[in-house]
C-alpha cells in the first residue's frame, strides 16, 4: 500500500518552494501533489518515491510532516473510468476523506488515490471487486 506525505504549511508565498527545494536537494521525485487549503494554512500532500526519507528530511528542517497509508488504484484513462470505481465505493459504503487522481499514461492508465479511515478494509473490498491496487513501487517504477 502506498504512503503519502502530508506537510503543514502556512499559506504564504515561498512555502512550496521551500518544500520542493528540500526534496530536489535530496533527489526525491514527486509523483503527485495536492494542496488542501484552509485560509491562513494548508496541508500539502505528496506522493513521492521515498516517503519515509521525505518525511524525515522535512521534519529535520523544522516542518511538520507525517506519513500515512492511502489506497491507490489503477483505472482506465477513458470516459466512465472513474464512474466504475465510484459505483463500487458507493456499494461498499466506503467514505472518502480526501482523494486525487493523475494520469500515468495518456489514453491508457490513470491512478486514483483515496484517503479513507480504514485503508486495509477498503483495499480488501476493492480487490475483491477486481480493482487493481498499486503499491509504493508500482507507482514510481511503472
Amino acid at each position: 500500500m502506498p504512503h503519502q506525505v502530508a506537510v503543514f504549511l502556512e499559506n504564504k508565498p515561498g512555502k512550496l518552494e521551500r518544500v520542493t527545494g528540500l526534496l530536489a536537494g535530496a533527489g526525491i521525485n514527486i509523483r503527485a501533489i495536492t494542496i488542501a487549503d484552509s485560509g491562513d494554512f494548508g496541508v500539502l500532500k505528496l506522493l513521492v518515491d521515498k516517503p519515509a526519507i521525505t518525511c524525515n528530511i522535512l521534519a529535520q528542517n523544522g516542518l511538520v510532516a507525517t506519513v500515512r497509508r492511502v489506497v491507490a488504484m489503477k483505472i482506465p484513462d477513458k470516459p466512465g473510468g472513474l464512474l466504475n470505481i465510484a459505483r463500487i465505493l458507493t456499494r461498499q459504503k466506503i467514505n472518502i476523506d480526501d482523494a486525487y487522481g493523475f494520469v500515468l499514461k495518456s489514453g491508457e492508465t490513470a491512478v486514483f488515490v483515496i484517503q479513507v479511515k480504514d485503508p486495509d478494509t477498503a483495499a480488501d473490498l476493492l480487490k475483491a471487486e477486481g480493482i487493481q491496487l498499486l503499491g509504493d513501487n508500482d507507482l514510481y517504477f511503472l
Partner: peptide, 15 residues
Amino acid sequence: EISGRMFHGEVGELR
C-alpha cells in the same frame, strides 16, 4: 506553532 507529534496530515484536524 503547531507541534509535529500530534499531526496526522488532515486539514480537518487542524480546523
